[in-house]
Nucleic acid binder design. Structure first.
Lengths: 118, 118
DNA sequence: CTAAGTGTACTAGAAGTGATAGTACACTTG
DNA sequence: CAAGTGTACTATCACTTCTAGTACACTTAG
């Protein structure tokens, strides 16, 4: 379910966070689905349980999952998360487009890009 | 000319590199313009000369500037750099759009975004 | 030629972050 | 009760960033 890239410059816990965010936003992990336990996932990925805990802590802080002592971590409702993520993506795209305008990349170029991928 | 954000999570040398890249790509710094000397800029920014040297080394490695011993660092020709940067931006935008499609962000949404900024 | 300014290279150390290792405790479930 | 779970804590190692200081070769202005 989770794949790590040790050659990636980003920290392991960050990769785990991002991977779970994606799985949750795309609906692969439905609401109230139980995530792998801290110790299980650590075993599976051959990394330290503390690293998983750090990732889960971050996911909880950002509202993607909720945690129940003694039972496990579970997926939160993802409707609001989706809308937030959509807005975030739009702002990121807009920022890139604006950066491009400074060096001669037109909005027509972008529309063309969206149409045929070049 | 260069402004540092100490609260930024990114390393100082990386901020310097990005700032100069922007100034060069946008034409603020024309071809063969002389950059501030390592020691001068370090003084001005109140940071260590080694940090400037690291930034200049990176800019040279990436072809944005060239260095002449005893004289200084100078801006390279920026035509190819611009084209490369444009392609890079287009790929980044495309990647974000594809990510958005997975959670229900349509290409029409993007076109609307480009038209009126929302 | 000399002095000042320049790029470059190197070592050393402080501080912060990421990851590991190990332990401990409270809670839930079977 | 036993096993599995989340959580918290300390200690340690490795790596990166940044600073500090030194040294040397080159170019230019005087």
């Amino acid at each position: 379910m989770i794949v790590l890239d040790l050659k990636d410059a980003r920290p392991l816990y960050e990769q785990i966070v991002e991977r779970f965010k994606h799985l949750i936003l795309c609906g692969v992990l439905p609401e109230d689905e139980k995530l792998p336990s801290v110790r299980n996932l650590a075993m599976e990925l051959s990394i330290n349980p503390n690293t998983i805990q750090k990732a889960y802590g971050e996911l909880e802080r950002e509202g993607f999952i909720y945690s129940v002592k003694g039972r496990g971590n579970f997926v939160s409702s993802n409707h609001n998360l989706k809308e937030t993520k959509k807005e975030e993506l739009k702002q990121q795209i807009l920022a890139l487009v604006k950066e491009g305008e400074g060096i001669g990349l037109t909005r027509e170029d972008i529309v063309t890009l969206l149409q045929n991928g070049t």
